[in-house]
Design a protein around this nucleic acid. Structure first.
Lengths: 236, 236
DNA sequence: AACCGTTGGTAATCGAGATTTTCACAAAGT
DNA sequence: ACTTTGTGAAAATCTCGATTACCAACGGTT
């Protein structure tokens, strides 16, 4: 067993087919849409037989999950690499770096945000779990940098977990719009907005605003539990 | 034609079935997941035959689109109603109101954000278009309030379109996490975070930060077009 | 009370696409 | 050259769910 075929090792041939399937999947999922792409379409475009498909993946979703992971991993790798290079820069520079590299990486190819933020949503519990994991990772990243900024005295010392989650959401929203809009939104403006929002969210004072006399909105709409509605979220 | 059956007019019976189908759809789409719910499931739970189903809807997606629209419309109605009540309050109070009412409305039932931000994503071009329309509406709303704040001198005069889109994304992200997390995130903290982020994003100065000497990240990663990387996005 | 038009539920059809199996070939070892 | 075995294409099967068609029941009408 394990002979070399066609000049290349079987391992290599396998890897090639797998790579081609992933490429085809990325292309079709983001154009036809995941729901409407058939396995045979992917196989046809990749030049791979269905038999080989099932040798590599358990089904369509498996391909999607792999792509989703790949894209996030790629971005994370780029970000960590850059962050290492500016290991001892000031905190705000590091945050800007994190963000610039992230945006730069995923906007290289509009199919990446499309797959990550549109096609891979609401497909299966497994994929939702995977999404959850990545949101956590990115949020932790952001929170860690924010904490660092706080230690350097350029941001207040507080819990940044929710802020980080909201920032991940902001980035997701911007990128989803970016890839959907026609005419396309300029990448530079997306990046600038994301950066400004992140910096202002991190550097903002604990109490943004003490509402005068009338404290916020209060009326007809049935409201579940409205404690802490004046911005006094706090931990510990 | 048009007799009264079972005591009620046929119109009424139709409307009832339609309503029951929508309720069943909301329940099943958010538990089983849209992909994996079958039309017959919806019919069974609603106590409606497939024949009647096709009298009301063209298919599963039609139900989903209707629900998506309903939820957004509900939230918008609540928000505009409240905003009218504080028509001449100061700008920041209005913004807080907008936000509080929105959060209060959609967190009444976790199935709403689940359907809106998870199940209804990446299903079909039509649904994506509908999503786009709603993002635009909400973003315009936010941008209008921000502009109002600027006119009152509590925020800089600038273009708030992208900021508004990012804020919509932030809200989406927070709510998606909220409905997915176990143990659940406290609603009050979500609201507080969203409000703080919105206020700091709107009130932030034009130039958040002039990067010192080394201007941001620049290196290995291939970058598409990096003009404006120092935050000089501007219109007109 | 018999009739007719409308309505609803059930059961059959129909089609699409995923998964498996078969078959022929090609390449390596002997 | 011959056998053996991995490999790929295509065809066959097989399952599932959407859609349609049919039949029964019901209520008002005469």
């Amino acid at each position: 067993m394990a002979r070399t075929y066609g000049g290349v090792a079987p391992e290599q041939r396998r890897a090639d087919r797998r790579a081609r399937l992933l490429t085809a999947g990325l292309e079709l999922f983001t154009s036809t849409g995941f729901r409407h792409t058939k396995i045979t379409d992917v196989c046809a475009r990749a030049g791979v037989s269905t038999r080989n498909f099932y040798e590599e993946f358990t089904g369509k979703e498996d391909v999607l999950r792999t792509l989703h992971d790949q894209i996030n991993s790629l971005a994370l790798a780029h970000v960590t690499a850059e962050l290492d290079k500016v290991a001892d820069a000031d905190a705000l520079t590091r945050i800007s770096t994190l963000l610039d590299v992230f945006i730069a990486t995923v906007t290289v190819d509009p199919r990446m945000p499309r797959l990550n933020y549109v096609e891979a949503v609401g497909v299966s519990p497994e994929l939702e779990a995977q999404h959850q994991v990545w949101v956590d990772r990115w949020a932790n990243f952001i929170a860690a940098e924010a904490t660092r900024a706080a230690e350097h005295g350029v941001a207040p010392k507080r819990d940044y977990r929710l802020t980080a989650i909201a920032l991940v959401g902001a980035g997701t929203g911007l990128l989803r719009e970016w890839q959907a809009h026609d005419p396309p939104l300029p990448v530079e403006e997306i990046g600038a907005e994301f950066r400004a929002m992140m910096l202002s969210a991190i550097m903002r004072p604990e109490k943004i605003l003490e509402l005068p006399g009338n404290p916020g909105a209060r009326s007809g709409v049935e409201q579940s539990s409205r404690a802490g509605a004046r911005g006094d979220a706090r931990r510990t």
